[in-house]
Design a protein around this nucleic acid. Structure first.
Lengths: 190, 190
DNA sequence: CGGTCAAGTGGACGCAGTGTCCACTTAATG
DNA sequence: CATTAAGTGGACACTGCGTCCACTTGACCG
């Protein structure tokens, strides 16, 4: 996007790769898809694939990033309670609800991707982080930096997947739990 | 332990393997240690290693399990606030503090182990889960099942590692943040 | 004690996926 | 067109995984 000129064939191949990867991830489950598979499905050579994406995780994250763009927009400029205007606790709860919806929609993509620690280095994570931090500040919580990660941790794909698949919770129950978490930490006491 | 008889050589090799693995994990970092390395360092054949531990994660979890035993004992029968007797919010905070200490002590072991979802299937996780759930019940929180995982999520090694290494928080700050989390969710309102 | 036999051992083997490398192709520019 | 640097793709060597099976060893029994 900012790169001083991307050749037409390069752009075409990037699109092909992402499209093929999304299809394969959905069909086979992310961990079962090899770099070879993706390259072949995209009609692209091995070297071309590696030129942009050093590993599977990079591709998965690129795809997620794309889907998360819309939500980011809403957080910044949408209507309350997701957007600005509502009290912090309500905004956090709305954010949780939206994220649960997102996780549910892209479960295939995100689950089992075994993102591990690389999850934190995404652009998207930085955005969520800044958002939650600003809510903590708005709620006058002391030392907000010590609460940001604990509040974001329940949104890790592994955690969501475990609650849903192994513990048998519905998306609604999970959202309800997170809402109580938001109220507990940010809610006006008294 | 319950197995109807473990041969002497088997027991000896199990000990060797765990000892070697702990040493290597600490020295090289868990993800850089191959199954081959462990087998060689333990003076044991590849097949022997695989007989018990299907992969690296299994070994790491076995080691953690061992270290977590002591804490489990304290939770059940130790003095308050860790053991029974204190109000739920205080007990949860004490549990958090103890876990942070544990994570810090075994950082080398646990960090970068990329445990992913297998973390949830440990015996230890089941124990923490039951403990936190009982605290939620004791505090008369409705639908405790929806809050257990969110409260345990911040203790994931990845999250702790990120806060400490990338965000530059101290163990004390992290503990303080978790204490506020405990108070927010379980604390007596008013 | 020595014999029996299943549990336990270890390393050779085949395989799958990774990442690199470089000779070739192709889009952009004047 | 000619030039040139970005981009391409597949062959290659390598590393780590997991299995398999012929051999060893410890436990138990007569």
């Amino acid at each position: 996007m900012l790169r001083p000129m991307e050749r037409a064939d390069a752009a075409r191949n990037r699109a092909r790769i992402l499209e093929a990867a999304e299809r394969l991830f959905a069909a086979e489950g992310a961990p079962n898809v090899t770099m070879d598979d993706i390259a072949r499905a995209a009609g692209v050579g091995r070297g071309t694939l590696y030129r942009r994406y050093p590993d599977r995780a990079a591709i998965a994250l690129a795809l997620l990033d794309e889907h998360e763009r819309a939500l980011q927009e809403e957080l910044l400029r949408g209507a309350p309670p997701l957007g600005p205007g509502a009290p912090p606790a309500a905004r956090l709860a709305a954010f949780y609800a939206a994220m649960v919806r997102l996780l549910d929609d892209h479960a295939h993509l995100v689950l089992g991707a075994e993102t591990g620690r690389s999850r934190f280095t995404t652009g998207a994570y930085g955005f969520w982080r800044a958002h939650v931090r600003s809510l903590l500040v708005a709620a006058d919580v002391p030392d907000p930096d010590a609460l940001v990660e604990p509040l974001l941790a329940p949104l890790a794909p592994e955690v969501y997947g475990f609650q849903r698949d192994d513990r048998g919770l519905t998306a609604e129950q999970i959202t309800a739990g997170l809402t109580r978490l938001a109220d507990g930490v940010l809610g006006t006491p008294g």
